[in-house]
Design a protein around this nucleic acid. Structure first.
Lengths: 201, 201
DNA sequence: CCTACCGATCGGTAGG
DNA sequence: CCTACCGATCGGTAGG
């Protein structure tokens, strides 16, 4: 229940509480426009006191981004390793992605759209782990192209970039409280990715 | 040739020159982290002097966003109005989009990813015109579903969000100097959108 | 387009 | 986790 806005009296201000507040604020208004004072108000301490729990604003963002993307890798890697056909893998990978997204919409927004504000060193780490995430989809597509299950577009990485584009944008329009469940949403995306828009002749 | 970084001596600092510099800086590093001092250095005047040409930072961003998205509407609207089949319209619309993107990658990056930093009033204007852009694709898809050319996903707006997601992400990975021309890129995207990944049986 | 400047806010720290 | 504070930078303005 990290949703509360004001500090819970008597509950210690932990690093985790600061992280949760930061996820919400960064996600809603963007990392650069959130000041340490906004953050300290949200958790109910004074600005300088934040530094008893975190080492810097940049470090806080890196933490959010790394744990955010790791959650996706943790659920998609098993799908890639499973004994499934390429199109089944793609289906399950997208379902797994949407499942994690539903659990952490706000963190995913920060993870996918705010890492550009990391300092050079933190940014390098974020890019590396993000690459691992993308590689999972590259593997699935390569398998599919090799087996003949997927069309060979002639562009090695482009299909992955498009799928990542869809999933990344889903972060902006998916609403956990909306009419469609994560499962329905995932199936609609899978159909678009695998079958395309056109009616089969 | 708005690519130069240092001020061209003797050339007047026009509003257009400031806009071009802003597009580059906002696109590379993000609107909130660019100061008016960065901007004034880029065009070769002192910070306060910028206000002889623009009324505010927010107004400058709004200008960039509105002209940026208008460029897309201007080329896609004729496609929607043309006498073409839905899949041909989709193909031509995506081609037209990529054509504009190729001409103004940096401005498109700002247009699609930084409008969230606009103040409330400017933001409302940006959302409105962005809606017009999305509606063009909604029209094409509705036509296609009505004629039976496209699958009916059961989700009215979702296909558009996915296509917009792909095109929006293209802004991040498309490089005008890259191997693939805008035309090739567009065709690969069209195939993905219309046919999907799966090999026809 | 410059000079000279405004009040506000920034991330972060020393020393408890 | 507070007190008290640092130097730097922010968007913007008055009056030429």
């Amino acid at each position: 229940m990290p949703e509360q806005k004001s500090p819970a009296k008597g509950e210690a201000v932990s690093r985790a509480r600061i992280r949760d507040a930061a996820i919400r604020l960064f996600g809603e208004r963007g990392y650069p426009v959130i000041g340490m004072r906004d953050l300290s108000e949200a958790v109910g301490i004074l600005p300088g006191s934040l530094y008893a729990h975190i080492s810097s604003k940049d470090d806080l963002l890196l933490d959010i981004v790394v744990t955010g993307i790791t959650a996706f890798i943790d659920v998609i890697q098993p799908v890639v390793d499973a004994d499934l056909s390429p199109d089944q893998k793609m289906r399950e990978a997208i379902r797994a992605h949407l499942g994690v997204l539903a659990q952490q919409v706000e963190q995913t927004r920060v993870t996918f759209h705010q890492w550009q504000y990391l300092g050079p060193e933190s940014r390098a780490k974020a890019v590396e782990i993000r690459q691992k995430y993308e590689d999972l989809f590259v593997q699935i597509i390569d398998e599919g192209v090799a087996s003949g299950a997927f069309r060979d577009s002639g562009h090695h990485r482009l299909p992955v970039l498009m799928i990542a584009g869809i999933l990344g944008s889903a972060t902006e329009w998916y609403r956990p409280e909306g009419r469609d469940s994560a499962e329905e949403m995932a199936d609609a995306i899978v159909d678009q990715v695998l079958l395309g828009l056109q009616q089969a002749a």
